[in-house]
Design a protein around this nucleic acid. Structure first.
Lengths: 105, 105
DNA sequence: CGCATTGTCAACCAACTGGTTAAGTGATAG
DNA sequence: CTATCACTTAACCAGTTGGTTGACAATGCG
């Protein structure tokens, strides 16, 4: 229930969405995530903490390295929540077009 | 771009999602929105402000009354963003089942 | 062992959030 | 015109967020 709060809040930051986007390409070390962002490792660590608290990222420690991977499962609840608002989209485009692509995105 | 930040942030509060849910049933005065929530009118006013800043609610003043109505349009961008993560859902259920219902909603 | 690598924790900070109460504004009913 | 209704604005407050730096812990290489 209030899980949605956490998920939405976690997704409401550019850097965290960028981290998730990066993780779509596969596992990454925490230190790998630090490089592209112009913030300290501590800051990245905090963002990853927020994401893992929200279950959007799973952190696994192997040796001295933390490996992060994506867990998109909580996004299901968000998608379900959004579903209830599709009827209220302004020009009621075919949802299938958006979700599955008409003929290329 | 950073619009998504605002949308996600606006959606990350229970009360604001409840306001949106209420507005699915149609237009409401600001004072109508205050009643079901155990907070002051000022607090509701602030929540509505956040929602209207995020373009999720359109406030129209007629006489001395502010009427609020839902604008689900920004949710399209959220849905599009989420679309890129469907492939990463754990047990890859058929998206059509979730979005359009298996046999009625 | 000794030391670099990888990351956390603690303390601090400024800015934002979500709530309050009290005062102010502006439209309408009488 | 005055009072009331429907809000907003202002001031305040505690707690959270997002960032910093510096010290610490744990792993693994040589």
């Amino acid at each position: 229930m209030e899980k949605l709060n956490e998920t939405f809040a976690a997704l409401s930051h550019e850097t965290r969405r960028a981290i998730l986007a990066r993780l779509k390409q596969g596992e990454a070390r925490l230190s790998d995530l630090t490089i592209p962002f112009d913030i300290s490792q501590t800051a990245v660590s905090k963002h990853v903490r927020v994401l893992s608290d929200a279950d959007l990222v799973i952190v696994e420690q192997r040796g001295r390295v933390r490996y992060c991977r994506l867990n998109a499962e909580p996004m299901k609840a968000v998608t379900e929540w959004l579903k209830d608002y599709q009827n209220f989209w302004p020009e009621q485009i075919d949802a299938a077009t958006l979700f599955f692509g008409a003929d290329g995105d």
